[in-house]
């Protein structure tokens, strides 16, 4: 192919933009958020509160959590944590499939990112149902 043909080919074919940066950005954001807060969140919700240690016993009582989820900042925090954790994990698991000998095709991609999307929608729906 000579130079003129090459230029023409470039003009006529519209290249499909990759969607990878979107998934990578979600992966990075979720990875950063979980690296900064993840261990402490797990300690609070999964260990300190159920065992009644370190924090007051009613830390996660219904009135407290309802007020937190109705607050705009609280809502945003809950949504970011759940959605970005899911997108981070989905991306990482999807890209690890090849490493454990599973062919990561379109189906696997749909399953991984699809589950993250379903979780995101459920979280958004629940947060809207809780009200403001």
């Amino acid at each position: 192919m000579n130079a003129t043909n090459a230029t023409n080919a470039m003009k006529t074919t519209t290249r499909k933009r990759s969607n990878a940066p979107i998934f990578w950005a979600l992966f990075g954001a979720g990875g950063m958020l979980s690296a900064l807060f993840g261990p402490m969140l797990v300690f609070i919700t999964g260990i300190a509160v159920p065992l009644g240690v370190v924090l007051p016993k009613d830390t996660m009582s219904y009135p407290h959590m309802l007020a937190f989820a109705q607050n705009l900042i609280g809502k945003g925090f809950i949504f970011a944590i759940i959605a970005l954790f899911l997108w981070h994990a989905a991306h990482r698991i999807f890209h690890s499939l090849h490493d454990i000998g599973i062919h990561a095709g379109t189906g696997a991609k749909l399953l991984c990112y699809g589950l993250a999307m379903v979780g995101t929608v459920i979280a958004a729906y629940a947060l809207l149902a809780i009200g403001f």
């Binding site: 979720g30 993840g38 944590i81 899911l86 990482r92």
Partner: peptide, 8 residues
């Protein structure tokens, strides 16, 4: 991370 997000 996925399991914990699921619990939350």
């Amino acid at each position: 991370v996925a399991a914990y997000a699921g619990i939350l």
